[in-house]
Write a protein that binds this DNA or RNA. Structure first.
Lengths: 129, 129
DNA sequence: CTGTTGTTCTATTCACAGTAGAACAGTTGT
DNA sequence: ACAACTGTTCTACTGTGAATAGAACAACAG
């Protein structure tokens, strides 16, 4: 699990961490049942505070990507990869909408948008950064 | 120009406002040269502070969607709809990546992703909310 | 018993969001 | 010339979230 944090990003570092764990799940690098480092170990490894890692973990738990077992450890959720509900897709649509609007202003055709999308999927699965 | 602000959203209201102006450009409702309300009039109309509208305007100006002419007014930028540069697409890719990761965890195929994308484009152009 | 686990508590610093009111310097219409 | 309006700038305040810090607790594993 390779994590890269951009300190100067507008995205909070706890969110960056969570997003990269999700990406690890998406590319199959992290499988259900796998354990994640303890909040203290991960924090020391990444050079950040214990509470920041804890915040990322609870964010991931709320999204059902991991399972936090008190006093034992943190594990990838059994249903980390699951079927999308209508609520899931609605939320995705809402979050994607502003970016798609911008893309349309940039004169991107639906074909070009789909190509862009395929590029991203490839980047994620191949681990390109 | 119909604007809807969600007060309880995690998205700052100045950003919500800016995003909906961009959407207006995307759907062709706002065309280059069109004028936008004054910061005071818009603020009164939306029930928010003048400075908040001003913040949204400057955000849009930085992104080259509008042009602020001091002491005169605010207008849709001549190049509000323009060709995407590589920098533009790279930024888009970076912003889309976390959401695509989540989509992959939800077992969405690339076909389903493209369908989702087409849905959003349709919603924007038809004005569905 | 020792070390590690996640949890909880208080505390502080910093930045951003949002509101508020006032004043300024140009522009526009009458 | 005057009044109304434009975006700009300034100070000021409140509230919230991000991030760090240190300490203590209870449960588990060796």
């Amino acid at each position: 699990m390779f994590i890269e944090i951009e300190a100067d990003s507008t995205v909070p570092i706890y969110l960056q961490l969570a997003q990269q764990v999700i990406e690890g799940v998406a590319k199959g690098e992290l499988k259900p049942g796998d354990s994640l480092p303890s909040v203290r170990a991960f924090a020391a490894d990444l050079g950040m505070n214990m509470h920041t890692v804890n915040k990322a973990y609870h964010y991931l738990e709320e999204k059902e990507f991991i399972q936090i077992v008190s006093k034992k450890g943190v594990f990838i959720h059994e249903r980390s990869v699951r079927e999308a509900t209508e609520k899931d897709t609605d939320r995705l649509k809402k979050e994607l909408r502003p970016m798609i609007s911008e893309a349309l202003c940039l004169n991107l055709s639906t074909d070009e948008l789909q190509a862009l999308l395929n590029d991203i999927v490839r980047d994620i699965k191949e681990g390109t950064r």
